[in-house]
Design a protein around this nucleic acid. Structure first.
Length: 528
RNA sequence: CGGUGAGUGGCGCAGCUUGGUAGCGCACUUGUUUUGGGUACAAGGGGUCGCAGGUUCAAAUCCUGUCUCACCGACCA
């Protein structure tokens, strides 16, 4: 590619509304442009990277036995009504009507569509297991899009769905996906970790997230320094310790749930934590008797409720089981709370805590979630009647797994992990170009132009992706642009070395420079 | 949705308090200059100041409404 026939679109100045480094660099290096909040155009350079990432994902999915399909972005509402998510999913689900006033959604995920397809296409146990995936645009009407492409409303996702008759089969595919994900992020040369995770609203039991480690990550990951234990802080269990070490208590009032699990506006549960600890909302709302989603009382309610117990709560009097670090006490209206104490894991794990696995202590690092795999069970297949005839001719509901990678988010995460003060430093496998060809004052020197043109033709013929900067620009401009864009290797052709038929090679990441014979350049670059 | 802040050429900003129909840097065009790290000089093109309404002889500037955007919280690949 010649820069003169390309859209480089680099900028000197950082747009004011970009906060994180990956967003700033994606704008400055000409990878993306914002169209509206959370909606971005991929410029040529950005699209090249996005396609590189997608292709690595595709290759590894294929190798792992998954089969590619492509489903519509627009999905009929009745599928979502079948699974109940039309009501459950909330405002992130963008609902639209067609000209006949029929309801549709812009797909935020594709469990409904794939399950609908499989129940029509798969009818025998002989066809199982099967794992189908697509790489496609998703739309989620995020409350607050932020950090550029990192949390956009429209984004590219690889989503795979597997179908099984037995838990063993599901586990096999889940393990294969786990390995494939590791391979994918290894190939992209990213520093990542698989971590145990909460299943959230998608449902199911077993789940792992894949995080790219970066300071700007939105998730906190708990690592053990004595084992390979890693879990999202949302999920990481804390060990109960002797209450004697607790230095004071703090409390939170949470709305209670009735027998049916519905929020009960008149009843509250008192959650008590050791001083200095922080409440983990996800753990709290999983407790029976506590309303989910968690509703905590404001100051007014606190005084009203605690006043109604007949006496002021004196936390020093709460008799905490000796093995518990913190407790749940029912502060039901007019009841003695002291008799309703239960111990539970309620708090966020913290650095320095003993690891739940029993080995080592916990360290907390920040991560960007780029992948998530789940064992879904029969949540969707049951609701939609997706099953096959088994060996005995009986209809049996399938169990499912689902496996996602945020393809566009990977691009941003890679930049968070690979940049310096000059710009992006792409890992070779996802770089938009492998090598930048930078001629010095080519428009004034016939021999430079001939050498550059010859080298460009040679590299291109060898299948090397080369960006030939043939603009009539000063050297400094070209160096700055190529560094900003982050092309991992560059070749500089100048009068200085041409007499000896030498050119200069420079490595973007290490900064190392060396001189190469003009004739050996293509072999050298090809071997990198 | 709650809190904070911002909307002035493609980008970054000034002007607004003390109304008089717009300015700087980058980028862009042309010429000269320079020639291994964003060269210098000169001449140009491009905005009616988010939108709507109001006050006024006169509004980017004052008033009202509205839209958009970013950041902090609750959700997610």
């Amino acid at each position: 590619m010649r820069t003169s026939q390309y859209l480089l679109a680099t900028q000197k100045e950082t747009p004011a509304d970009a906060e994180v480094i990956s967003h700033q660099l994606m704008l400055r290096a000409g990878l993306i442009r914002k169209l509206a909040s959370g909606l971005y155009t991929w410029l040529p350079t950005g699209l090249r990277v996005l396609n590189k990432v997608a292709n690595i994902v595709r290759e590894e999915m294929n190798k792992a036995g998954a089969i590619e399909v492509l489903m519509p972005v627009v999905q009929p509402a009745d599928l979502w009504q079948e699974t109940g998510r039309w009501e459950e999913y909330g405002p992130e689900l963008l609902r639209i009507k067609d000209r006949h006033s029929r309801d549709f959604v812009l797909g935020p995920t594709h469990e409904e569509v794939i399950t609908s397809m499989v129940r029509n296409e798969i009818s025998s146990y002989k066809q199982l297991p099967i794992n189908l995936y697509q790489i496609q645009t998703k739309f989620r009407d995020e409350v607050r899009p932020r950090f550029g492409i990192m949390r956009g409303r429209e984004f590219t996702m690889k989503d795979a769905y597997s179908f099984h008759l037995t838990q063993e089969s599901l586990q096999d595919t889940y393990d294969a996906m786990y390995s494939a994900y590791c391979k994918i992020f290894e190939r992209m040369q990213l520093d990542f970790r698989p971590v145990m995770a909460d299943t959230g609203s998608i449902g199911g039991s077993v789940s792992h997230e894949f995080h790219v480690l970066a300071e700007s990550g939105e998730d906190n990951i708990a690592f053990s320094n004595g084992s390979d234990y890693a879990a999202n802080v949302e999920l990481a269990q804390t060990q109960q310790v002797d209450n004697a070490n607790v230095d004071g208590l703090q409390y939170v009032l949470a709305q209670a749930a009735d027998e049916d699990g519905e929020a009960d506006a008149n009843n509250w549960v008192l959650l008590v934590l050791a001083a200095g600890h922080t409440l983990n909302d996800i753990k709290a709302e999983k407790l029976s008797g506590v309303a989910a989603p968690l509703i905590t009382a404001n100051d007014e309610t606190v005084s009203a409720v605690l006043g109604a117990t007949g006496n002021d709560i004196d936390l020093a009097d709460v008799k905490v089981p000796v093995f518990a670090d913190y407790v749940v006490a029912a502060a039901l209206k007019n009841e003695a709370y002291a008799e309703k104490i239960t111990a539970a894991d309620l708090r966020n794990i913290e650095a320095g805590d003993p690891s739940p696995c029993g080995n080592g202590t916990i360290e907390i690092k920040r991560g960007i979630e780029v992948g998530h795999i789940f064992q879904l069970g029969d949540k969707y297949s049951e609701a939609m009647g997706c099953g096959v005839l088994n060996e005995n001719g009986k209809h049996e509901i399938l169990s499912m797994g689902c496996y996602g990678i945020g393809v566009s988010r990977v691009v941003a995460a890679a930049i968070e992990q690979n940049h310096d003060e000059h710009g992006i430093i792409w890992p070779d496998p996802i770089a938009p170009f492998k090598v930048a060809l930078i001629p010095m004052n080519m428009h004034k020197s016939q021999r430079i132009m001939e050498a550059a043109e010859a080298l460009y033709a040679e590299l291109t013929a060898a299948g090397v992706e080369v960006l030939f900067d043939d603009r009539k620009e000063r050297p400094g401009v070209m160096f700055k642009d190529m560094e900003l864009v982050g092309i991992p290797h560059s070749i500089v052709i100048g009068e200085r070395n041409l007499d000896e038929q030498l050119v200069e090679y420079k490595n973007r990441r290490s900064g190392e420079k060396s001189l190469l014979q003009l004739t050996e350049v293509t072999a050298f670059i090809g071997g990198l």
